[in-house]
Write a protein that binds this DNA or RNA. Structure first.
Length: 420
RNA sequence: GUGGCCGUAGCUCAAUGGCAGAGCCCCGGAUUGUGAUUCCGGUUGUUGCGGGUUCGAGUCCCGUCGGCCACCCCA
């Protein structure tokens, strides 16, 4: 009895880790004025077959026929869903639209490090503005999100490219047909991975040479990148980005800027990726809605691995996990005859919003302190013979003081608890 | 989907073809109102699963499932 391959159980500690990641995503997106939205987990298979996704995603769909004979698929990405939502109500929202979502996705592929069949993804989209400043704003959001986890420009890098640069390059060399250009881009996408001879062979049908492309890669100084860097420099974020025209990305709908985030040591897969899709909404709506858009996705799997590997980021995550799992107060029932009073104390503390644990049945005081320690509570309230006075024990310093029962509500209101 | 390596207690691992073990974790105890560390005791196994070879298989062979890595691609 175990989970299906690529699917996960979330024990409390795993859940706390997930809460840390999703909570950080949500917090940063909100600081950029983004609103949260969501869509259905299950979609019509047609949504992905309309060849807007393309690439491998179609082959990785978790799809089946439902009891009503509909062909359906668990969503493998958010962009088609958000595109449909935007098309449905495009006129209702003030532009540019700033939306984010945090949701589970499914892809049927062989699981390995950084790749599961169910994962969470943070999706951010900026719709209705095609300016380079909008591009920079999205990269800033991406970078700030990673910074919020304690990652620095020594840990990660955003490799930035632009498909328009390549389209111009190809057009100048006679590759003008769009389908052909797309095939050529697929070869360029493999520059890092395939041997030179194979690349040469694949490029020659387009009238291209590997040498020509390498020269272009080395010498090209596209104008867009300088503008992007100046915008990011004004925010102090310029160290996070490098121009890397080798990034092309597999999804078919990208039209301009494209980017992927990697750890500097290149030990993991891409942490996040995205780009500009200025024609997707128009294409999907048959021209009814014509809004440019840029977006990115960040998965929880590679990010989680990376956070565990970087000491600073890890200690940040660990302390959040600890705070998430801990109680605020442990009530010790030192005298079983005072259990009723102890329950009153528990009730009062909980009413103030404190997380409270206590022994459900009679237990030795020594055992109770052990449990108090394990509960993670920084402080214990001891209810016993001295009632209506209470003893307050700081579980770290082991110092005790006395508190009148009548003063308990005020004491609880002033209790400092670490932010989760 | 293709290839390589791996699969023993909840976890980390040990056991020449010859009685399946250790550490950690967990639970209980060390004269009844105070939790570090310590000491004592206890539970935990269809050796992933199914066949085969052998007097005898955790160990060798075949299959299968699962995991890791690479390819493919990407969050």
């Amino acid at each position: 009895m175990r989970t299906l391959p690529g699917f996960r159980d979330f024990f409390p500690e795993d859940c706390a880790r997930r809460n840390y990641i999703t909570g950080t995503w949500r917090r940063v997106a909100r600081t950029f004025g983004f609103s949260e939205y969501d869509g259905p987990t299950l979609e019509s298979l047609d949504l992905y077959r309309k060849k807007n996704s393309g690439g491998e995603i179609l082959g990785q769909l978790f799809s089946f026929t439902d009891k009503g004979d509909r062909e359906v698929a668990l969503r493998p990405e958010m962009t088609p869903t958000v595109a449909r939502m935007l098309i449905a109500k495009a006129r209702e929202f003030r532009k540019p639209i700033r939306w984010f979502s945090i949701a589970p996705f499914f892809r049927y592929e062989k699981q390995q490090k950084g790749r599961l069949r169910e994962f969470l993804q943070f999706n951010c989209d900026l719709v209705g503005d095609d300016s380079p400043e909008a591009d920079a704003e999205m990269l800033a959001l991406l970078i700030e999100t990673l910074r919020a986890f304690g990652l620095t420009s020594d840990d990660i890098v955003v490799r930035v490219s632009d498909r328009r640069v390549w389209m111009d390059f190809l057009a100048e060399r006679g590759v003008k047909d769009e389908a052909q250009a797309r095939e050529a881009l697929a070869v360029i996408d493999k520059l890092e991975r395939e041997p030179r001879e194979v690349l040469e062979a694949k490029l020659s049908p387009f009238g291209l040479t590997l040498g020509g492309i390498e020269t272009f890669l080395a010498e090209a100084k596209p104008e867009f990148f300088g503008r992007l860097q100046r915008n990011l420099a004004a925010r102090g974020l310029e160290d996070f980005c490098v121009l890397d025209l080798r990034i092309v990305r597999g999804l078919a709908y990208y039209t301009g800027l494209v980017f992927e985030v990697f750890d500097r040591r290149q030990e993991n897969r891409a942490v996040a990726g995205g780009g500009r899709f200025d024609r997707l909404l128009s294409d999907l709506s048959g021209g009814k809605v014509n809004l440019p858009a840029i977006g990115f996705g960040m998965g929880d799997v590679v990010l989680g691995d990376l956070l565990g590997e970087r000491p600073d980021a890890k200690s940040r995550m660990d302390s959040s996990v600890k705070a998430d799992l801990a109680c605020d107060v442990f009530v010790v029932v030192a005298d079983e005859a005072r259990r009723a009073e102890a329950l009153g104390v528990v009730q009062l503390l909980r009413a103030t919003g404190r997380r409270v644990d206590y022994p459900l049945t009679a237990d030795k005081v020594g055992r109770q302190f052990k449990d108090a320690d394990a509960s993670g509570a920084p402080v214990a309230i001891i209810v016993g013979q001295e009632w209506p006075r209470l003893r307050v024990k700081d579980l770290k310093t082991r110092m005790e003081s006395e508190l009148a029962q009548a003063a308990l509500a005020d004491w609880a209101a002033n209790l400092q608890t670490p932010a989760p």
